[in-house]
């Protein structure tokens, strides 16, 4: 193992044991980001590091609620990017945020159908059809909550056949052609490649997920944190996010 790798390992170990952040070099930016940002932020990280030589972005990915818990329990991080406002609000209320969070991305809902749309789904009204196999995320998962809101907005009482534990499980069953349709985020449809097709849900019934970002008060690297947030909100940052299906606020 080379010296740099060893240093990285020591830093990680320090994080893991919560010993503190004295081992963190000023050139490292630790970003706690929602799991749905995994692919997009990997590219943002690469672009940011190219633009800022010597800076190393470390992504800590997880569900927004578990990241919120980590931050409130004192785990060191420079930036928090959440997939919804409720977890961000709790971080702000806990006094961990520097100033007000900024919304950096929006994620719209889309109807996801298997490639070729074998059931001929055209819109949310098809979700009431008893003869089709329809899946949603479970009610308590954000995508399930938003999906139900969209159905309610459209006045559709859905004939649901399964409430999947998360959006990944729902997509798998749509990809396999076992479900005729489900409701996911635009970014999920995009990430599934050609196996899944998206059908647009009209703006007047669609539900928008907002992604806020903020610097943290306990940031070991406040300058790096500020630079990263600025980059995400900048033109190049927004272009990368758009390529993954996110909408600019």
């Amino acid at each position: 193992m080379d010296r740099r790798g060893f240093n990285k390992l020591v830093t990680l170990a320090l994080f893991a044991f919560g010993v503190g952040c004295s081992g963190t070099t000023s050139s490292e930016v630790l970003v706690s980001a929602a799991a749905s940002l995994t692919d997009a932020f990997a590219e943002v990280e690469a672009a940011f590091e190219t633009a800022n030589p010597g800076v190393d972005v470390v992504l800590n990915l997880g569900s927004s609620s578990s990241l919120r818990q980590q931050i409130l329990e004192g785990a060191p991080a420079d930036v928090f990017a959440s997939a919804n406002s409720s977890n961000m609000d709790q971080v702000v209320a806990g006094g961990e945020a520097v100033g007000e969070p900024t919304t950096f991305a929006l994620n719209l809902l889309q109807i996801a159908v298997p490639a070729g749309n074998p059931a001929g789904i055209t819109g949310l009204q098809d979700f009431a059809n008893e003869d089709l196999l329809i899946g949603l995320c479970a009610e308590d998962v954000p995508c399930g909550d938003f999906g139900r809101q969209a159905l309610a907005n459209a006045g559709v009482i859905a004939a649901i056949d399964t409430n999947e534990p998360d959006v990944r499980a729902l997509l798998t069953k749509i990809e396999a052609g076992e479900l005729d349709a489900g409701i996911t985020y635009v970014t999920d449809v995009r990430s599934a490649g050609g196996a899944v097709e998206g059908i647009v849900i009209p703006d007047d019934v669609n539900v928008v997920a907002t992604y806020p970002i903020v610097r943290l008060t306990s940031a070991p690297n406040p300058d790096g944190a500020a630079a990263f947030v600025t980059f995400v909100l900048s033109g190049p940052g927004q272009t990368i996010l758009a390529s993954y299906g996110f909408t600019s606020p």
Binding site: G135, A138, I160, D161, T162, N163, E164, P165, A169, K173
Partner: peptide, 12 residues
């Protein structure tokens, strides 16, 4: 069960 049969109250 959840992977093959899904999750619906009263059915699966």
């Amino acid at each position: 069960t959840i992977t093959f049969a899904g999750n619906l109250q009263g059915r699966t």
